[in-house]
């Protein structure tokens, strides 16, 4: 926010516009971002449901019930496994593609475009296409491995974006650093692993964080591919929330989405902190 203390050294003293000009912007922020989040907290402590008109506070009852019921923990576990797998696959594929397609040849340019197409596709379309492709195979019917298959599909859809960001990272590495390394006698392999990869740290931070936290909030691809099956082994939390909301248990569904929100926040801070730490050595 703009600092308006008069006379403080280095501060902006010239008022070009009155402060209340900010009100519309903050008003929008409040109504469309702050209030929904507040309601997410408030409704979690009520008995809001599709069955009756009144909404009464119930304290921590929804939380107690969720904790006593094993379904929440199972869904949370599946969600985390899914998110970690997606983050892993998406970054490995994206990184591999970026390195493969780094040089600006005509073929590479065309190939990059093709790998970016899935990013632009509707997630539901991707899900339904793969569901049709894999129909009848064991791949979508195995109670252990289907979650991996769905994570691969998710990674397949988004790997183009990771590729783009890694490419941008690779392009920004100054050529003289690489030249200096080769003059110092570093092989291409050493230069790649010891110089170029560490210099990609900011790209890694962005890619890992968005893939991990984005897939924690995943829904569309899983819903379209498996709908949570087989035997609910791919029922990530958002599918569970969707099911609960659909039963008219709005407060319980809100409570779950609050739990998901807190979990994402809890995971985001350490993950981003650790990845940022890696950037500090630069």
């Amino acid at each position: 926010m703009t600092i308006l203390q008069n006379g403080a050294p280095g501060s902006i003293t010239r008022r070009t516009h009155p402060l209340w000009f900010l009100l519309p912007a903050y008003g929008l922020l409040l109504v469309f971002f702050f209030l929904p989040t507040v309601f997410n907290f408030v409704y979690a402590f009520t008995d809001w449901s599709g069955f009756k008109a009144a909404i009464n506070p119930v304290g921590f009852e929804n939380f107690e019930q969720l904790v006593s019921d094993g379904t929440l923990f199972r869904s949370l576990r599946i969600t985390i496994v899914y998110a970690v797998l997606v983050a892993l696959f998406q970054n490995v594929f994206g990184f591999g593609l970026a390195v493969l397609l780094e040089r600006d040849t005509a073929v590479n340019r065309i190939a990059r475009t093709f790998f970016l197409i899935p990013v632009l596709m509707s997630a539901l379309a991707v899900g339904y296409i793969f569901q049709a492709l894999l129909k009848g195979t064991e791949l979508l019917a195995h109670t252990t491995w289907t979650v991996v298959v769905v994570a691969l599909i998710h990674a397949w859809k988004w790997m183009g974006l990771s590729m783009l960001i890694y490419l941008a990272g690779l392009k920004t590495i100054p050529l003289d650093v690489i030249e200096a390394a080769s003059i110092d006698g570093a092989s291409r392999r050493t230069a790649f692993w010891r110089i170029r990869v560490p210099l990609l740290a900011p790209a890694v931070t962005f890619n890992v964080a968005t893939a991990l936290l984005g897939s924690m909030n995943g829904f569309d691809i899983v819903q379209a591919t498996t709908g949570g099956g087989p035997a609910r082994t791919t029922e990530i939390l958002n599918i569970f929330i969707y099911r609960t909301f659909g039963q008219g248990l709005f407060a319980q569904a809100t409570t779950m989405s609050l739990v998901l929100f807190l979990l994402v926040a809890l995971m985001a801070f350490p993950v981003i902190y650790v990845l940022r730490k890696r950037e500090e050595v630069l």
């Binding site: 449901s49 069955f51 019930q65 087989p230 035997a231 082994t233 039963q247 008219g248």
Partner: peptide, 24 residues
């Protein structure tokens, strides 16, 4: 699919029934 026993089916269904009935 083999991930639940009949007893677990009954428990899970009962729990959910109570939850829905209470909300209603």
């Amino acid at each position: 699919a083999g991930t639940m026993t009949p007893e677990q089916v009954a428990v899970a269904t009962q729990d959910q029934f109570v939850q829905l009935a209470k909300a209603a």
